[in-house]
């Protein structure tokens, strides 16, 4: 394997890794936002799927990927709204609410896609084409990797930077982190705990939905049932590995993406070995990474706990 001696092959390998990690990055960012505010977001998988379905539907109906993007975000926001009502307002166990939403979204998107998106042809929808940034795209190795991508990839860079800045450099970020650590202090200071949490959940789900949009509008250009295929759950692991920090989540997702690219390459290289042996790789890698590196970090102190004003 002369992958690392050949610049072109290396570029290809790294950009495959980047492409595979982008949906994960969006989902993990969404998870980071809502977990920082003290709400487990197990519904990331559902957000991805809802985003993908919305993207396909919007782009199909309006024949524009931008409309698809908006519809996708809208669908993910619906999931987020339900999660916020159930987990924050009604106090349903956050994990159970998230899992229930995943089941609901899986069934609903399968049913509705058969109802709305089938018929003649495979319903291939309008997507985004790569948009190379002038000059920067010509740099060897880094150029094609970072600057010869489509709008969604640039959007991903922006979202990572923006959420990092928002969380650590703005008053909103402080409130958001505070409701995840010590909601009573926030309440005492006269700010609404539940409102902050609901906003964080909605924002998180919208961002995660972008990952689903990416799957449809930049990768396969059609909706398939259960196309999220566990990415939302991998993203949950990435949230922990990234220590509830957007930059950390980005790093963890890039690691998973590269593992995935590696296993795809191995699959092609060894056609005689059943491919499942290789498709385990990203899951084993993230499991091992969790076990090895997550011992010392502490999650936000009030995660998973509903805040009740009169409570103890």
């Amino acid at each position: 394997m002369n992958m690392f001696s050949d610049l072109q092959a290396l570029t290809d390998f790294l950009s495959t890794g980047l492409r595979l990690s982008i949906p994960l990055v969006f989902a993990a960012l969404g998870g980071t936002l809502s977990e920082r505010a003290g709400v487990f977001n197990v519904a990331l998988e559902g957000c991805l799927l809802a985003g993908a379905f919305g993207a396909a539907l919007g782009s199909f109906v309006f024949i524009s990927p931008y409309a698809g993007l908006l519809t996708g975000i809208g669908m993910a926001l619906l999931v987020g709204g339900l999660l916020a009502i159930l987990a924050v307002r009604l106090g349903v166990n956050q994990l159970v609410a998230g899992l229930a939403l995943n089941i609901l979204v899986l069934g609903l998107t399968s049913y509705l896609s058969r109802l709305l998106l089938t018929g003649d042809g495979r319903r291939i929808v309008e997507g985004f084409a790569p948009y190379p940034v002038p000059f920067l795209a010509d740099i060897p190795l880094l150029g094609p990797l970072l600057f010869k991508q489509d709008v969604m990839t640039y959007l991903m860079y922006a979202t990572v930077a923006l959420s990092w800045w928002m969380l650590w450099k703005t008053p909103w970020g402080l409130v958001l982190r505070a409701v995840g650590e010590n909601p009573r202090a926030v309440d005492t200071a006269g700010m609404a705990v539940d409102r902050a949490r609901i906003i964080a959940v909605l924002a998180g789900c919208a961002v995660a939905g972008l990952g689903g949009c990416y799957l449809v509008l930049s990768q396969v250009f059609l909706f398939t049932e259960h196309m999220s295929a566990g990415k939302g759950f991998l993203a949950l692991a990435a949230v922990i590995l990234g220590r509830w920090n957007p930059l950390g989540a980005l790093a963890a997702c890039l690691l998973f993406g590269l593992c995935d690219a590696l296993q795809l390459r191995l699959q092609f290289g060894q056609p005689d070995v059943p491919y499942q042996l290789f498709s385990i790789v990203p899951f084993v890698a993230s499991f091992l990474a969790l076990v090895l590196f997550s011992g010392k970090v502490k999650p936000p102190a009030s995660i998973g706990i509903r805040y009740e004003r009169g409570g103890k």
């Binding site: 159930l86 229930a100 089941i103 609901l104 899986l106 069934g107 399968s110």
Partner: peptide
């Protein structure tokens, strides 16, 4: 389509 039952199950658990 039978997938409607998957969706209904989701509503039930919710």
């Amino acid at each position: 389509d039978g997938t409607v039952i998957d969706a209904i199950q989701g509503i039930v658990i919710l």
